[in-house]
Nucleic acid binder design. Structure first.
Lengths: 337, 337
DNA sequence: CTGAAAGCGCTTACAG
DNA sequence: CTGAAAGCGCTTACAG
């Protein structure tokens, strides 16, 4: 950093008070006299002083920042959540640091360093595969951590999540209500908690409805558009086809519809498709996508709020879980069987 | 931050050397003896020490972080760029702080604080409306700043940008090559540099081709899907309609196509449409979108690299501009007139 | 209400 | 190659 920014010393000199008083005037205005406050404010204006956060943080042993670990920053799913987190954090005067967990630099060790290094007062994890509980160091002296969207079944760290299996149930019931009895599912990436939850929701609901969960109607995927297109190819190759498909996210639903379209198969006339997430394009896709909405910026806000409470409360890192409901949005990609 | 993390003192004690030596072993390994290095490394392992960045930064007068100011974090356009920035920064050992410029907290004053407060060694601006040159304080002692994608015509801060007008020219020429002679344009938000550049490219090319730039064929927009749909409504209301439309971004192109589709108008059979950006969904949209590709993670990397060079070089904040070429991707939303 | 003084954890000339 | 010492800019008990 360049030198010569005014320091608290400069302000003290101009105001003719001690640095302690300047500091107090800033942090506890009510503890200095009205007159002093005025003089200090004045000196601050004249010098153009702003507090050096680094020095303050060193002294206070805090960082004024939280870090968010994101599996893929370029993915709109995460950026919407990030947006909610940032809005809440900035309102609370906290900076937000981000790191993409696909970067080789972000090893578990580095996560530990973020915390130890006094870089962050807390951590939000959007990647359920991350295991901060494995970081050496007593958990007692670890800053708060909360999972957002994803979580890890091998620890009981607090998390904020959507009701994934409930959302999947909504999708399947909707298809059933339309008269569909042959229902398929496009899965997310293996080993992902969301994939498991959504699949679970689909299977349970199928079961409850007395419908068959046919192995060849469960298409493998990875949340990408391309995976949806691959599922379309598989659907086309089937002897007996499902008349409706619930995809584990909107991208795959779109890729699926698009793949079918290129083969001359129409959605919803030939197959009904429901997505998951309600991404921006969903209502302008052709056909407009019926999907399970998850309020993504809200979950980000909710996670940030939970984290900040823990930071401020300084309290116990009690395991806790908050679940946000999902909602079905019916549009034009589904119709009666 | 919680207490009791091991400090350099602890390491020194265990290694039976001075803290100065530990510090050197970490920062300038070649300046300590092989034996000492071994002993220090060993002590670090045993204590679980990681450097306290806050203290280091205070001493070194740097922050080890850059801040990226984003107009809308939830917008995939920006998140892709952010991803490129983050990848480069993290590779160089720099943390990245983000702030959404729509947050009221991010006033110009706050931008100044980011810099003064020793919070950041440099700044990347994705929002051309931001004017860091207006921040009080001599520019000489300001950390480096670079615009990315957008820029501001009222200052000559360095920027990395796409060839927007060249890209628009590509789009119009492509339409012309297909035999279209009645060509319209959907504009981005007013007052945006990208809007102006793209419109400029369209107008110049139309002119060069001897085609008319009809006022009622230039539809107002704002880069949103909804704006595209509104343009579709306007197109439908026209007496004389353009047979081809170049949109200033892909979202508007998709919204436009979707709006026409709902009215029974087919793209590309009835109108040809070309987008701008090549967003993820572009090739799975129905029809697959012909568009002008802008390598967004590359521009992010490029901006981060430029910033880091300036930070490391410590050098002059010379005005400089880097322009990345755009490329036309022909798919199915355009056809012969 | 205000100030003197210690100290947060590190780095870096300066000696040796 | 190594150590003693000062200092980065702030905050906060402790006195008064």
């Amino acid at each position: 950093m360049t030198k010569a920014f005014p320091t608290i010393q400069d302000v003290a000199r101009v105001a003719k008070v001690s640095t302690a008083t300047v500091s107090r005037a800033l942090s506890f205005p009510e503890r200095v006299s009205k007159e002093t406050r005025r003089v200090v404010i004045d000196a601050i204006e004249r010098t153009g002083y702003t507090v050096n956060q680094t020095a303050r943080n060193l002294r206070r042993k805090q960082s004024g920042a939280i870090v968010v670990l994101v599996p893929n920053l370029g993915n709109p799913f995460f950026s919407k959540i990030l947006s909610g987190i940032e809005a809440t954090a900035s309102r609370e005067g906290l900076n937000v640091l981000i790191a993409d967990t696909r970067q080789p630099q972000v090893s578990p060790r580095l996560i530990g360093e973020y915390l130890h290094a006094n870089r962050a007062d807390g951590l939000i994890l959007l990647d359920g595969a991350l295991r901060p509980d494995l970081i050496p160091g007593a958990p007692g002296k670890r800053p708060p951590i909360v999972y957002c969207c994803e979580w890890n079944e091998d620890n009981d760290l607090p998390s904020v999540r959507f009701d994934n299996s409930g959302g999947a149930a909504l999708a399947v019931r909707h298809l059933h209500d339309l008269g569909h009895r042959r229902i398929g599912h496009i899965l997310g990436p293996a080993d992902n908690v969301l994939t498991k939850e959504r699949e679970h929701g689909v299977r349970c609901t199928l079961d409850a409805l007395g419908l068959e969960a046919r192995r060849d109607w469960f298409f493998e995927g990875d949340f990408s558009l391309a995976a949806g297109a691959r599922a379309a190819a598989q659907w086309l190759a089937l002897d007996e086809r499902p008349t409706a498909v619930a995809a584990a996210n909107d991208e795959m639903a779109c890729g699926f519809i698009s793949g079918l379209h290129r083969a001359g198969v129409s959605v919803p006339d030939d197959v009904s498709v429901v997505g998951f997430d309600d991404i921006d394009i969903a209502d302008q896709f052709i056909p407009a996508l019926t999907t399970v909405r998850q309020p993504r910026s809200e979950i980000g806000e909710s996670a940030a709020t939970a984290l900040i409470e823990r930071i401020r409360g300084g309290g116990a890192d009690a395991a806790e879980m908050k679940t946000l409901a999902a909602e079905l949005i019916v549009r034009s990609s589904t119709r009666t069987a």
